[in-house]
Design a binder for these strands. Sequence first.
DNA 1: CAGTCGTGGTG
DNA 2: TCACCAAGACT
Length: 314
Amino acid sequence: MPDRTEQTAHEAHSNIGSVQDHSGSPSALHDPVLAWYAVNKRELPWREPGAGAWAVMVSEFMLQQTPVNRVLPAYQRWLERWPKPVDLAAEAPGEAVRAWDRLGYPRRALRLHAAAQAIVERHGGEVPDDHAALLALPGVGTYTAAAIASFAFGQRHAVVDTNVRRVLARSLTGVAQPSISPTAADQRLAVSALPADEPTAARWAVASMELGALICTARTPRCADCPIRSDCAWVRAGSPPYDGPPRRGQTYEGTDRQVRGRLLAVLRAASAPVPKTELDTCWPEPVQRERALDGLVADGLVEPLSRGRYRLPA
DNA sequence: CAGTCGTGGTG
DNA sequence: TCACCAAGACT
């Protein structure tokens, strides 16, 4: 437990630049969150000391929109099979899609494969430590570039994922939920909350994210166990409910995504090319079925062969 | 920039 | 039960 006395009267000189009025002071959060993390962090394979940047990168790709518990087995198998970028780069992209299993969003598998090839071609087979170089890799966006640079190389970057956006929205801005999609304001807020010192900033990045994953959760936050509850602007305001616009529910039944998922499941399970007649059994409605299959081919997830047969890309 | 892209666990 | 949610990227 962090040994903090009750809030040491926040100075009234509040604001940083143009960001909205935070009722909390970012620096007041650092020590409690870091201390909490030291005690409560999960032991995850990509966090082990010898994991390396490739392990971090693989985990980050898999964790894009997929929960930790579902990533773990696929992650283990992946690194066992492809311990270095060059190992994956030498494989057919379809093997990456197959090994991706049912993690969802299989284009991530394709992008990770392409990123491995780019790492071999541009960086001698080593995951680059430069933020701009990372950002230039397929499938690496603002978040993932910062995450790899911070987690794997200890650099100082604002690592802004949905967890961090929620933690900052509550603790600093005082609202129940962050904006629906990431905004420039979120990014600025995260930058302003970053410790100045590089190693401390790197620890803050994982720690604040972990806090969002374990305590400051979306549905039912465990405020009673939160190390910064006494400094949290949202708690101080009486934990007001979310009052913004309704969040779009993501329907799945009957969508192209469901059809794509079914088609790809058949192809993943097949060791030989699959006749289209077999794929046709995946979905009764022909127009949507064709559209889904065409989409998969266009995305490079499926390769059409002669005589109406299909397979994962070679 | 809003839409698209999988899958499964859960409150 | 069923809507909501999970370490986003890309167009």
